[in-house]
Amino acid sequence: MAARKTSTRLPRDYLGLLDTPVLHLRNPYLIAWWSVAFPGFGHLLLGKYFRGLVLVMWEFFINQYSKVNAGMVYSFMGDIETAKEVIDVKLLLLYMPVYFFGIWDSYRTAVDLNDEFKLSERENSPIRKYTIESIGINYLDKRSPVIAILWSLGVPSLGQIYQHRLLQGFFTLIWTIIVVYYSHFMEALVYLIQGDIERSTNVLDMQWLLFLPSFYFYTVYDAYINTVEINKLFDKEQSTFLTKNFQDLDFKILKGKVVE
């Protein structure tokens, strides 16, 4: 039985010095949900980094100046009149179309990339294992999903850096520092530990603080799911290599039995 020809038309991964995009199956509804939580996150999960980063920065800019987060806080407290006063309606009308576009586009892209993944599987597309250049090295390796989660729980972005996904990792780290600084989260945490709950509450900037939960839980989820998928890709590459170089061409398995 002749060996199946490997296609170079649909590669499964790209081992760059700044990131490791991987093609794999994704749940389009889950991707759309992350875009609901924070515009751009769905695209980042898909590896659409430029579009995702632009949407994330747009969300920070337009949300900060339209005061959507502050309006949400007051509405949760039942103070509807104050919520109406703080929100800039003119900017809000710019916010909504881009927000819904991010949800729709991430869902559509997830469906398309799932089709591309199925084609790459059918064509036995190649998997890159090493990238070595004068300024650095990146390689496909198995890593622990639990370790990735723990680092992300400690400081958002460290799970991505652990996977050698530096572009997204450092971008997330910078914005996490900005959000923590302007929300006064660390100050509030210190006062809370000291038992001064009133001062802890008063020092918080809720407009900035509402950015933090989405960032925090997104990095944990992203670190876990990408570690699992990179590990699957590593196993696939090892299996393909061993089959191609060490398995007899006449070797085949039928209904769970080895046929020689």
Rank of each mutant, 00 (worst) to 15 (best):
A3D: 10
R4A: 06
K5Q: 11
T6H: 09
S7C: 02
T8R: 08
T8A: 09
L10I: 11
P11S: 11
P11Y: 14
P11Q: 10
D13H: 14
D13F: 01
L17G: 09
T20A: 11
P21Q: 04
Y29I: 03
A32N: 04
A32H: 02
S35D: 03
V36F: 15
L46H: 03
L46A: 04
G47L: 06
M57N: 13
M57L: 15
F60H: 03
I62W: 04
S66H: 06
V68F: 07
V68K: 07
S75E: 10
D79S: 12
E81P: 05
A83E: 05
L92F: 06
L93I: 14
L94Y: 09
G102N: 13
W104N: 02
Y107S: 07
A110C: 04
L113F: 12
D115K: 15
D115H: 14
K118F: 00
L119E: 14
E133L: 14
I137W: 05
N138C: 05
S144I: 01
A148C: 05
I149K: 01
W151K: 15
L153R: 10
S157I: 01
L158Y: 10
G159D: 00
Q160H: 11
R165Q: 14
F170I: 12
I174G: 02
I177F: 12
H184M: 05
F185Q: 08
A188Q: 06
L192A: 12
G195R: 10
S200D: 06
V203F: 01
D205H: 06
S214Q: 13
T219M: 12
V220C: 08
D222I: 01
D222A: 12
I225H: 11
T227S: 07
E229S: 14
Q238W: 12
T240I: 05
Q247Y: 10
G256V: 04
G256C: 05
V258Q: 08
V259H: 13
